[in-house]
Design a protein around this nucleic acid. Sequence first.
DNA 1: TCTGGGGTCCTAGGACCC
DNA 2: TCTGGGGTCCTAGGACCC
Length: 393
Amino acid sequence: MFVSGSATILHADLDAFYASVEQRDDPALRGRPVIVGGGVVLAASYEAKAFGVRTAMSGGQARRLCPRAIVVRPRMGAYTEASKAVFAVFRATTPLVEGLSIDEAFLDADGLRRPPADVAVRLRRDIAEEVGLPITVGVARTKFLAKVASGVAKPDGLLVVPPDGELEFLRPLPVRRLWGVGRATAAKLAGYGVTTVGDVADMPEAALVSLLGSGAGRHLHALARNRDPRPVRTGVRRRSMGAQRALGRRGRSPGELDAMLVGLVDRLGGRLRAAGRVCRTVTLRLRFGDFARATRSHTLPQATAETPLLLAAARNLLAAAAPAIESRGITLIGVSLGNLHDDRAVQLALPFDQGMEVDAAVDGVRGRFGSSAITRAVLLGRDQGTSVPMLPD
DNA sequence: TCTGGGGTCCTAGGACCC
DNA sequence: TCTGGGGTCCTAGGACCC
């Protein structure tokens, strides 16, 4: 391991997260191939990965590759709890934590007194001792490089990329290691004989832009040349919230679909309200019998977290899509809520019989917070007073 | 081999407004 | 009667990530 004093960003990534939680909680699973999820592999322990089992693989294929694997049902609650414990250790290390997913985060180690490599060693030890899970940490000057480093160091590893060894580390890597290069982009690049990060770095930016579009092209050009100025950002808010359900191949009646839609929207409405947020855009996600995907969306005039309003919008979208579903079949239904805002609702408890004062109060709030602060004022009844949801911005 | 459940970001066209 | 350029919002689709 190379220890450097000037690398400042850590990328911490739990190994085979769901499977590791299962092995931690059930000693009989330790050292054995474990697959989480039945129809599709949600996570595979490293013992199972050794047989070629991969995340997102179908359950049937995974069992053929590794017949001895123990298949366990996912326990989302246990994973959420483990994630919270891990993030608590992150925040005890530094307040500058940017979560990327349930099992992954960037930590800014700049400004900590000890060298970043020491911070990383201690972080891995703390998480092993306090949460009982293996975690891999990549350390580098930039986010991108730190993430690549943790990917290379997996599992249960630590890799520091020294500032004077960055290009040497980066150039031989396959393009798929670049953040944002998936199957489609890798295939496009391979068509031009571009297979390594070094190959990408040697291409003119204009060539990448004409091949991949201006956004992806410029992004890749910069990353391949090790330019990534993005800082670690705290307090990043969720921008959408969704729930979906796979349906298998057999057909579903309109009544069944409607019942599923009700269930999905009800769950999302609860999550939205629990998070203290409201949404304006409702998107219906469909996957047809041939597995082609489609989305249908509608933007409401006002943001809301009320289930009946969300459900009405979702039902309209489903009704509009009914002919396509009828003719093509359906294998997945989902709902996603976008255009999220904070719901900073204030409840003005005013007597029902003083309508003049309600108007005055609304004017007062508008005067203080701007004319767009109040989108709706509702008379609730004698005892409840007046509800005034506010939507600043 | 037959396909989960959660997200993010980008692109492109059309509507609409100035 | 014919017509520019720019900006924002909405919708749909696609790629990618874990």
